[in-house]
Design a protein around this nucleic acid. Sequence first.
RNA 1: GCAGGGUUAGUGAAGCGGUCAAACACGGCAGACUGUAAAUCUGCUGGCUUAUGCCUUCGUAGGUUCGAAUCCUACACCCUGCA
Length: 364
Amino acid sequence: MPKSSDSKQTKSFFACDNLPSGVRTGTLALSDVKVSTPTFMPVATRGTAKGLTVEQVRSTGAKILLGNTYHLYLSPGPELVAKAGGLANFSHWQGPTLTDSGGFQVFSLANMRKITEEGVEFANPDNGDKIKLTPETAMQIQHDLGANIIMAFDDVVSLDPKHRHRTEEAVERTHRWLERCVAEHKKLSKGKANPPKLFGIAQGGLDKRLRQKSLEFIQSQPVDGVAIGGLSVGEARADMHEMLEFMAPLYDSQRPHYLMGVGHPTDMRFAIEHGIDMFDCVLPTRNGRHGTIWLEGDVQVNLKKATFASDLNRLDDSCDCYTCESGYSRAYLHHLIKVGESTGGTLLSIHNLRYLQRICESYQ
RNA sequence: GCAGGGUUAGUGAAGCGGUCAAACACGGCAGACUGUAAAUCUGCUGGCUUAUGCCUUCGUAGGUUCGAAUCCUACACCCUGCA
């Protein structure tokens, strides 16, 4: 692959080559670990990639693990995680971590939260308890959780036409909240030898004008990375791709570009070819638990289907994941999923995570 | 042997004269899932065929009734008491 760039910054947090194809290959320096990009970051909302040990996650080639502010705040609480030495230690991951701010829960828990200018008040789905997240508390919690990368607290809006009127308001609020995040983050970082990197999140739904405005604002701020939020929330694939294409020339090339919540192979390839460096998504682990996998060529297969009941072939001959290399048969995995043995979900999650990581590696 | 109770679709189990092809659960067959309230959710699940249609089903065989899974009789099998 030809290298055409310019923007190599060896000692900084992020260094990358912008290739003429639109693809970028880079390196994130997170504490002692160098992470090659593009990279896929498995989601460990409550401190674990569901069903997997950290060793299993690591075996897929993942370098950064995601946690969630809202969920870890509810349990076990940031104090305990801090006391345990941060999420990386507490979870035994012992590697780079990123925490999402809880902004996504503004969207996913839409029917049990109230937004005000100050922040968002959630009702805990388990017991109805009120939980308030603000830009300031989101920063404080994430500092306590001790991730290497933390995310700004944003206002994520559904793309449902009924909520479109809120898109612009949400963009503006996300910007105001970002300024508060930046200020709080600066305060909390004072005196810290190795403060976390803060990423801003651009919103704007499927409105190009708002997207551009949001990207410009986010990039005008002293943030370490640029994230794209508010996509992969139910829109048509073509709409998402159109937006990615539109935004590609607008990114600051010096900072990493993180497309939040995307992890469908087709979308990842498209995004990588349009300047995205980082991804996270629940799809590989959720699908794995539900019995669906990706095979060579991005073919999605539901292993629960009766046709696999007696298929003694391994999952995918072209895959080097633990599950495939060990030779687990489709029939066996089909059986585990059918009878509800969690090992099945684990083995398929490993495969799916590795599948996405291999996509990233193919560009690195 | 006597007296009760039971036998319902792949399984368990409701229904006890019409609105019953028959609730519900499980199982089965498909589908969905993109910063995880998700090991979850949705649809279908007698046959024909896709319709406010027909056919065959509620242990077996008869009967009563305009009409029976539902009532009566006999038989078969199962369970519980008493012998």
